[in-house]
Design a protein around this nucleic acid. Structure first.
Lengths: 233, 233
DNA sequence: CACGCTAGGTGTACGGTGTACGCCTGTCAA
DNA sequence: TTGACAGGCGTACACCGTACACCTAGCGTG
C-alpha cells in the first residue's frame, strides 16, 4: 500500500501557494489556526519549510493581508471624487468582511508592503482629485483611521458570555447596570429599538461604518470648501 | 548572612500590588516584558503565585488598563458639553501617553471591566448632556472609535528600519517611491514642511488627534442642530 | 489550648509558540 | 559529468500560559 496517507497532494511550494493556503486556513479555522506548525501540517510539510518562502511569521501575515487587499476593486474613474472614495473604501470593507481575520491581521502587522502603500496612495489620490490640499488630505486620512481598510474599531463588541446566567440573576445585574451606567443602557435600548432581550447583541456595524464614513467625508468636503489651510499648525 | 539576596522586598501580594507592579514593569520595559513569568520574577515570586490574584493573563492586562483609566480626571461639571467632552477625552489621552503600552493593551483586551464601562458611560453622558439623542450619541461614539480612549490608529507609523540604508540606495528608493506612490509622498512632504530628510519620521500625532476630535465633535453638533433622527435606519 | 480552615506561595509538568542551524536531495546549467 | 543551489527535513532551544497537587502560616472558634 502507498504510505503517503497524510494531508493533501504536495507539489512544490512557492510563496504564493503558501500565502493562499494561509488565507484559506484562516478563512475557515480562524487566524489563530495559522501557526507555522499548523500551516505546515496543512500543506503536508514540515514547519521549517515555510521559512524558505517567508522571512518570518510577521511577513506571513503581511502577505495574507496583501492577498485580501488585492481583492479591492478600483472604483470607476468616471465617478466624482467623493463617490469614488466611498466606493473604494466600501470595496475594501467587503474584502475584509469576506476574511473576518483580516481586521486583526491588519491591526497587528507592522510591515508597510507595496500593496498597503498602494492602497493608501489610492485613497490619498482620491482626496487630491477632489482638490483637497495635501495637508488636509493627510489629516482627513488620519481621521478616517482604520476605516480606510474597511473597518472601524469594535467598541461595543461583546465577547458573548459562554452561557447566559440565570434569568433572575440577569434581572439583578440589569438593575445594577441600569443605575451604574444609565447612558450606556439608554444607547443600547435605542440601538435595539427597545428590544431589551438582545441588548448585548451588538450593533449594526455596517450602519455605524457608513455613518462615520459619511460624517468624515462630509466634514472633509466642508473644510475644503471653507478654504481650509494648515495655518493652525 | 541573610539568604534573601534575590529581587526586591517581598511582603505578601494582593491584587492591587500585582497590578501596580505590572504597570510599572510595562512602563519601563514594554508590554512584552509583562509575562506571567517576568512579572513574577519582578515580584520575587513564582509565576503561579500570580494566579491567586488574577484569573488569567487577559484579566491581568484588563486590570492594568483599569489602572491607566483610573488616571483620567473628570472634567469640570460647569463646562459646556463640548468642552467637557474634549477635556475628558484629552485627559484620557494624557493617561495613555503616560503609558505607551496602554494603547495595545486596550485594543487587545476583550474584557469590559466596570472602569471601562464607567468611562464609556461618562462619554455617552457628555453627549446626552448636550441634548443629542441616544441614537445619535451611539453613532457618534462609534465614529469616535478608539479616540474615546485617547488614541487613534497609527496609520503612518514607521517601524523605524534597524539601520538606514546607504544614502545612494535611499536616493534610488526615494525615486522609485516617488513615482509609485506620488500622493503619499506629497502628503509626507507637506507633513514635514518640506524637510525631506525626515519624511519617514512620523506625524504630529497630537495634532492629528485633535483635528479628528474637533471634526467629529463639530459633525455631531451639526447633525444634532439639524434635527438628526434615526429615520435613515 | 488545640483544632481545622483557608489564603497564599511553591514545584512540577504539559502542550503550545516562533525560529536558528545543519543536513540531505533532486534539478538543472555549464 | 559535475557542482551549485533551491527547497524540504530534523533537531533543538527558549519562551509562553496555565492545570494540578502540595505545603505552610495565621486565624477564628469549640
Amino acid at each position: 500500500m502507498p504510505r503517503d496517507a497524510a494531508p493533501p497532494r504536495r507539489e512544490r511550494l512557492d510563496r504564493d501557494r503558501v500565502l493562499r493556503a494561509a488565507v484559506a486556513l484562516a478563512d475557515d479555522s480562524g487566524l489563530d489556526a495559522v501557526s507555522m506548525r499548523g500551516l505546515a501540517q496543512h500543506l503536508g510539510v514540515v514547519p521549517m519549510a515555510l521559512y524558505k518562502h517567508v522571512a518570518d511569521k510577521d511577513e506571513l501575515v503581511s502577505g495574507m493581508v496583501d492577498v485580501v487587499l488585492g481583492e479591492i476593486e478600483p472604483p470607476d474613474p468616471a465617478l466624482p471624487w467623493k463617490e469614488a472614495l466611498r466606493a473604494r473604501v466600501l470595496s475594501a470593507r467587503r474584502a475584509v468582511l469576506r476574511h473576518p481575520w483580516a481586521r486583526r491581521a491588519i491591526e497587528g502587522s507592522t510591515r508597510r508592503t507595496p500593496t498597503v502603500l498602494a492602497h493608501m496612495d489610492a485613497v490619498a489620490g482620491g482626496f487630491r482629485a477632489g482638490g483637497l490640499s495635501p495637508d488636509l488630505t493627510h489629516h482627513v486620512m488620519h481621521a478616517l483611521g482604520n476605516r480606510i481598510w474597511g473597518f472601524s474599531p469594535e467598541l461595543f463588541e461583546e465577547p458573548a458570555p459562554a452561557e447566559p446566567p440565570s434569568p433572575e440573576q440577569q434581572e439583578a445585574m440589569g438593575r445594577e447596570f441600569a443605575q451604574r451606567y444609565p447612558h450606556i443602557l439608554e444607547i443600547a435600548v435605542a440601538a435595539t429599538r427597545g428590544d431589551l432581550s438582545r441588548v448585548g447583541g451588538g450593533c449594526d456595524e455596517q450602519f455605524e461604518f457608513e455613518f462615520a464614513l459619511e460624517l468624515l467625508l462630509d466634514g472633509a468636503e466642508r473644510l475644503h470648501r471653507a478654504g481650509w489651510a494648515s495655518a493652525a499648525r
